[in-house]
Design a protein around this nucleic acid. Structure first.
Lengths: 170, 170
DNA sequence: AAAAAATGTTGACATTATCAACTAAATATT
DNA sequence: AATATTTAGTTGATAATGTCAACATTTTTT
């Protein structure tokens, strides 16, 4: 049986919830609009829309995958699938192509025979670094002209976004 | 003929330039790395890598184009080409498809017979708004859980990036 | 008047991505 | 222990997406 105070607490807390929910709704409306605005800006600004990405003969996804393998050093394909949310059959084919090019090496795992460990070859590392350098150059051309104050502010803003949206990671 | 003070001024200013240039080099290295980090995060986080974008039967580019036509209200194809940096032949075909679907209408321009003015039909507006709503929903699911302080900070950060990188627009 | 540039279209591909079905191996369930 | 489910990766078939060069028109520049 409820005491009076408990009852009031429930009432109060419910009201609070409604209040907070209402406030958040509005807040989300604003932030959602801002994110869309940002996405419109950023996809064009970074050239994600036109997929002829760099002069390199690689797609954004390919570069991203090579980079990921480089970071992992050794991993299995499903690690990449989970990290980048790409289709496993697509990745499988890309990995095959990388192998043919001599960028990636496959090794059957001993403990779990379903898995195939993948890793960059020396040539793969070199090529990935070349691609990173290319990307760097492209990005540098976009920030050239910023003064150090703007760079700092930009840097902080980028990290702020990662830290806020990153904790949501599911 | 230079006075001593002018000479010193030039020397000083040159040194300053070197100093600033040197400082900026390092600053760029850092900011370029940060931007790459951000791109890695953001492309995955926003699902730009796997192009099965929304449940909608539209690609990111298509949605972007519809949105752009909506903002322009009336425009010509090359406006969109310039705004989004996409291939004109690709756009031409997409516009044709939109026309067949009844989303976009073409009208020959009178003053310049090369151009074709394009605009969204009522149905096109409706469909674009539906797509915007879908995008909103998807983004909302990513910010759900943020408190209003985090939303504010996120918002400021997004706008900071646009304001800094946006002025570079070439 | 001739050359160059802008607008948009088309042909012919190349690339990129997706979906469903499948094998093989490991794990969970009964 | 036998069966079912899940996980890892591959393959076939095909769809969707994007690109490049060549072209016709019309306008602008020289």
């Amino acid at each position: 049986m409820l005491t009076l105070s408990t009852k009031y607490y429930i009432l109060f807390s419910r009201q609070c919830q409604f209040f907070i929910a209402g406030e958040n709704m509005e807040t989300y409306d604003k932030i959602v609009r801002e994110i869309r605005r940002f996405n419109r800006f950023y996809t064009v600004n970074m050239g994600f829309l036109n997929s002829g990405y760099l002069d390199s003969n690689y797609s954004i996804a390919e570069i991203r995958i090579l980079f990921e393998i480089k970071v992992y050093k050794v991993c299995i394909q499903s690690d990449i699938v989970k990290a980048l949310h790409i289709d496993k059959s697509y990745l499988s084919r890309l990995v095959q192509r990388f192998c043919k090019k001599g960028l990636v090496e496959k090794m059957k795992s001993d403990n779990d025979k379903r898995m195939t460990k993948i890793t960059l070859t020396a040539m793969g590392i070199e090529e990935t670094e070349r691609l990173i350098a290319l990307t760097n150059k492209q990005i540098e051309s976009q920030v050239r002209g910023l003064n150090s104050d703007e760079c700092d502010k930009l840097c902080n803003a980028l990290n702020m976004i990662i830290s806020i949206l990153g904790k949501e990671e599911c």
